[in-house]
Each structure stands twice: as C-alpha cells, then as structure tokens.
Amino acid sequence: MTNVARTGQTLLIVASSMLFAAFTSAMVVRRATGTDWIAPSVPVWLWAAALLAIAASCLVAKKFYRSAALCGFALVASQIACAASLRMGDVAQSFAAVLVTAHAAHALFGACALWWKGERASLFWHFAGALWLYVLWLIGVWA
C-alpha cells in the first residue's frame, strides 16, 4: 500500500470514528435524560454476524480478498435485515437501527473496496470489523 493510500484511509477512519463517537454520546445522553429507555434485545443471529466480520479480517490477513469481501456482503445483508426489524418508535431500538445502518454503509464500502482494490483496502476493513464489535457491544450489552 502506498503511503498516500494509507494516510487517506487513516484519516477516513478518524472521520468515521468521530461519527460513531457522536452517535454514542447522543445515545448516552438520551438514555440518561429520557425516562423511556427499554433495553433492546439483539437477535442472536446478529451476534453470529460478528463471526462474519472476524472471518473476513482473517481472510484479509491470508490475502483472500474476494472471499473476505463475500463475508463482508453477508454481514451487510444481516445488518440490513436486523435494522429493518427494529421499531423506530422505541428510542433504544431507533439508536440501534441508526448504528447498525451506519455500520452497514461502512461495511458495504469496505467490502466493495476489498473486492476491487484488494490489499489496499485492508486497513479500512480491519477498522470496520473492530467497529462492528464495538457497535454490537454498545447495542447488545451496554444498552
């Protein structure tokens, strides 16, 4: 990977981290100030989606970029299915939907990049995988 590509990706990662940090702090504040917070129940299969993210990262490490991208697409599909099943009228669920959808956008971008750019997109993909574990923790454990 060229230095320019690595720096560009690192900066993109910073921007994405800020986006999720902003969603997180909004969620923390909203839970603390409202009285209507009901812990959402995260479907079991969404946890399985974590395995997809990890598997994709392992495949990237082994240089199987297109297989990794396929895992990535499967992850996106499961995320969209999950987000579609959430009720937007419930505040905790609506936060979960926002986080899952925002992550799906990142995972889709990352998987496409893996498919076409291979190794050059690896850094971003590892970030997206770690971010998914964080999102799962946030909506599945913390919330």
């Binding site: 921007a15 902003a22 209507d36 926002v98």
Partner: peptide, 25 residues
C-alpha cells in the same frame, strides 16, 4: 473539519429521522 463535520453529520442524520421516521431523539 475532519473532527467537526462528522459530528454535525450525526446530528443531521438523527434530526432527519425525527422528521421522517417518527423517532424521538
């Protein structure tokens, strides 16, 4: 810009959902 605009984007997305998807952020 890198640190600030991402936060406005988050605010904008939540606002749009309050307007269009019936959420109560």
């Amino acid at each position: 810009s890198l640190f600030a605009f991402a936060v406005l984007l988050a605010g904008g997305i939540l606002l749009l959902l309050d307007r269009m998807a019936g959420t109560s952020f």
